[in-house]
Nucleic acid binder design. Structure first.
Lengths: 184, 184
DNA sequence: CACACCTAGTCAATTTTTTGACTATATTAG
DNA sequence: CTAATATAGTCAAAAAATTGACTAGGTGTG
């Protein structure tokens, strides 16, 4: 029941369809949670049954109907209770690092290619996060924004994502450099 | 079947009991994988059946017998094949960030306490990682070590862990500062 | 005018992971 | 002497997450 709280948090931004949420979980929410569309649709269904979200069907022209989900009072209460609970420590699980750990006993070329790929993914994510930040700031300075904005939560989590990806890129560069040096 | 590869990678350091591995998964391996002792014992059992690891029982004085597991040729082959496969992108899952995202609708005191706690955990981990690094370097400089050591994999993953925890601490400090400022 | 890909979902089966309940002996701190 | 903690495991159930197979209409490109 953890995906549920990430969905509730995402719905603070406003009413969304399952599809909208899937896009969010690929962009801003990706900072702290990942989920496939299938997981979202199923969880939303259950949450609607339990009254944590309210669904309404909107007919669209030239497209299938969509269902928009919004937080209910019960949903807000649940989210509030969640913020008061002790968060689980994060479980790191990174296959690339397992590969790097065993690089000397493994396929060096493949591992280096995987690191390059990771770096590209990180660069793409970083750019997206930076665009999101610029949109949030809307011209204001960070200090200005943090002092005046109604909600700073989304900015703070975004800052974590940006720092994480920057660090990721630095590490990929460093690691590639070390491995290439040792190969040549 | 992903824990399996982390275990194989950990066994590159040498023969270990399930208990030894549990300690590793709490220290060095924690950089890239987490597992409870229960998960390890079960997976080791299966891996032994499949011939990826070889178990031998060692009688101990004043203690229960222990089983030591070592990599087999099949295990090394499996690990090598794994390093050649495309690693899954990591799935981030951080309850604390979900709480921070919703901090304005939630329990501010509890969220700030959780951030402080995360910072302390990160500081403890960082110290442990730095001790491990010092032990690996054994007096040599980083450049010296990277050029001459037989295996650099463990050092590189440790470097990732150190950078990650440092970034973590910085973010906790920044975020606490912002939240405390807005509360007072 | 095909063909690929996007939007908007549903459903069921697996796989993976976690959690909790157990059994034993050994060592250490108060 | 006693209680807490560490060592060394097993087993089963439950929860969580992933995967694959579907349906159906819409949009854009060569």
């Amino acid at each position: 029941m953890a995906l549920r709280h990430a969905i509730l948090a995402a719905l603070l931004e406003g009413e969304s369809s399952g599809y909208d949420l899937a896009k969010d979980f690929d962009a801003s929410v990706a900072n702290f949670w990942t989920a496939t569309p299938q997981q979202l649709y199923r969880e939303l269904e259950i949450m609607a049954e339990q009254g944590l979200v309210a669904a309404r069907v909107v007919a669209q022209e030239r497209r299938p109907n969509k269902r928009l989900f919004a937080l209910t009072e019960a949903g807000r209460t649940e989210l509030r209770a969640f913020t008061a609970s002790t968060p689980k420590p994060t479980a790191v699980r990174d296959e690339l690092l397992v590969q790097v750990q065993s690089v000397e006993s493994g396929d060096g070329d493949a591992v280096r290619a995987a690191i390059r790929n990771r770096q590209e993914v990180a660069e793409t994510k970083l750019k997206r996060y930076e665009r999101l930040r610029d949109r949030l700031l809307a011209g204001r300075t960070e200090a200005d924004y943090l002092a005046s904005a109604e909600r700073v939560g989304p900015y703070l989590t975004l800052a974590r994502g940006i720092a994480f990806e920057q660090e990721n890129i630095r590490w990929c560069e460093f690691t590639l450099d070390v491995l290439v040096r040792r190969t040549s």
